Amino acid sequence: MRPAHLLLAVLVAAVWGVNFTVIEIGLGHFPPLLFSALRFLTAAVPAVLFVGRPKVAWKWIVAVGLVLGVAKFGLLFLGMDAGMPAGLSSLVLQIQSVFTALIAFAVLGERPSRPRALGMAVALGGVALAAVDEGTAGPLGAFALVITAAACWGLSNVLTRKASPPDALNFMVWVSTVPVLPLLGLSVLTEGPSRDLAALRALDWQGVGVVLYVAWITTVFGFGAWGWLLRRHPASTVAPFSLLVPVFGMSSAALFLGEQLTPLRWGAAALLVGGVALTSLAPAGTRPSEVVVDEREMRSTTAAGSGRLQP
């Protein structure tokens, strides 16, 4: 990988990691579900006008939009609003790789290799240690919401793999159109129209800035750059850079939000990052029956599995 490409990969990981701190700041301006709806609305418009028509069936766009956009991001924002620290959220969400492997085994029949199984066990140990740390400092209910968000992310990864989009950015921009109305409806029902209107009336430059960051910088730039790298380098070369996301997430939360990095949290980080590395980079294992795919499908499947949308 060229130095410029390497720096771009690190920059994307940094953008995705700092995003958790930006979300925390944004939750001081907006109710969580309204904030999530604004994120997807701003990400989809005007980008949807420039990416062309959808290149996969609408059933996959709607399915991923509901699971990833409504369920995963809705639960993440709710969990962080309920007290889950930004840095810890950036770390715990990486357990999605374990959920992805488990759901792929159940749905696609992909039996994980021994190194992957070991990685899953190590990562789960990291989550257990993180739960102990959170139990001494914050609400476990918020922790559970983020874990559930990670499970929804795993399911969306499997759905994305089934969709095999030939253009990952086109796919994610169209996916971003799906959650807007459901999230707005849920916000009105659960957070209340008066609270939503009050947040919009009080909108200031910081509020605008956080929405633009989570929409255009994190989603449009981050995913676009990630997809660009995946088209030029093997997924096995690009994917490991996503392990830097919790490093930047925890560091930025400590720097800008004053979150403490306890020994337990460092231990959880070591186990989770190590386990996720084994799960993500080890050989995938085998299927019950051999499946033959053409070269184009292999490329799109690799991009869908490795180019996961970050929060």
Rank of each mutant, 00 (worst) to 15 (best):
V146F: 00
S97L: 14
G274E: 01
L181M: 08
T302C: 04
S251T: 15
P193T: 05
I23T: 07
I61Y: 12
G307E: 08
D133R: 08
G74R: 11
G224K: 01
M1E: 12
L261Y: 08
A71H: 03
G52K: 07
L203D: 05
V92P: 09
A137Q: 14
A131Q: 07
L169Y: 08
L91M: 04
Q94P: 07
A117S: 13
P240L: 07
M298R: 14
A253E: 08
V173C: 03
V98S: 02
M1R: 09
L183S: 10
G17E: 08
V175Q: 07
L49N: 01
S194L: 14
R53D: 06
L108K: 05
G305V: 04
A225C: 04
Q206C: 01
H5G: 13
S236R: 12
S242K: 13
V273M: 11
R231W: 01
V45G: 02
K162P: 02
T21F: 09
Q96E: 09
K55R: 15
A254N: 03
Q260T: 15
T136N: 11
A282T: 06
V292N: 06
A198G: 08
G87C: 10
V62R: 00
V56C: 11
L27Q: 08
E259V: 13
V245A: 11
R2N: 14
S90H: 02
A163N: 09
V292R: 15
S156Q: 13
V291C: 03
L200R: 07
A44N: 03
A104L: 07
A123H: 01
A304L: 06
M120C: 13
G26A: 03
P32I: 03
E259G: 14
P193D: 08
F20S: 10
W60H: 15
F221M: 06
L27H: 08
V132Y: 10
P311E: 00
A142Y: 02
V175A: 05
L6K: 09
A104I: 06
V48S: 03
L230M: 12
V10W: 00
R2S: 15
L244F: 11
G17F: 05
D81M: 04
L108E: 15
G135N: 03
R308I: 15
P182I: 10
L255N: 01
F99Q: 02
W16G: 11
V18M: 08
G258E: 03
G222A: 05
I61E: 11
T42Y: 01
I147G: 01
